[in-house]
Amino acid sequence: MAKDWNADFVARVKGLKSMNEQQQLIVLLFEKRNRSKDEEKELELLLRAERAKERAKSAELAAVKLLGCRKDAERKARNHRLIQLGLLVDMAGLESRSRGEILGCLQSQSAIQDDKWAEWKRRGDALLAEKNAEHG
């Protein structure tokens, strides 16, 4: 398997427009028919380094992809939450009000006592259940 990777790597490197010094040495040593033991060790070391670079690059790409997926999930969850809140504004018949009016109204209600919030929750839950029954 390593020999296949080595041959594939050398073929890829030879296809590059420009090779760095390390890649040039790998190609030179790889194509040499009668390598000495020292040259064999050098080639193996250089190829191991290249494999390690590729594995590191692959791991980095996987990490970037993972972070991207996590950010996508967070963004989708936030968007879903905002849409749900927007639907509540529509259900309450406030869609014709300005953003400033709605925000001012909500902000003025934030200091209300907890018993009033419990009453509003009961009324809101009943309305939501009614809407769900109509559409369900």
Rank of each mutant, 00 (worst) to 15 (best):
K17E: 03
Q24L: 03
E21R: 11
I26V: 14
K14M: 09
S18K: 08
E44R: 03
R48N: 15
R51Q: 12
L25H: 13
E54M: 13
Q23H: 12
N20G: 11
L29N: 01
R51W: 07
A59N: 03
S18F: 00
S36T: 15
L43Q: 07
E39L: 08
A59I: 01
K37D: 15
R51P: 02
A11D: 09
F30N: 07
K53V: 14
E54A: 14
Q24N: 04
Q23G: 15
K32G: 00
R12Q: 06
L29P: 02
R33N: 06
A52E: 10
E50M: 12
K32R: 02
F30V: 09
I26Q: 04
S18V: 04
K53R: 15
F30L: 08
R48S: 14
E21Y: 10
K32L: 00
N34A: 02
Q23S: 15
F30A: 09
V13C: 03
K53N: 14
S58D: 06
I26A: 06
K53Y: 10
L43W: 04
R12D: 07
R35Y: 01
A56L: 13
E21V: 12
A11T: 10
K32W: 00
L29W: 00
R35H: 05
A56F: 11
K17N: 10
N20T: 08
R12W: 01
A52H: 07
K17S: 10
F30C: 06
F30G: 02
E40W: 01
K32S: 01
Q22D: 13
R12S: 06
K53D: 13
E31H: 00
K41V: 03
F30T: 04
S36H: 06
L25G: 07
R55I: 00
E44A: 04
E31I: 01
N20P: 09
E54H: 09
L16D: 05
E42Q: 15
E50V: 11
L16M: 12
F30D: 08
M19Q: 11
Q23E: 15
A49G: 13
N20I: 08
K37W: 08
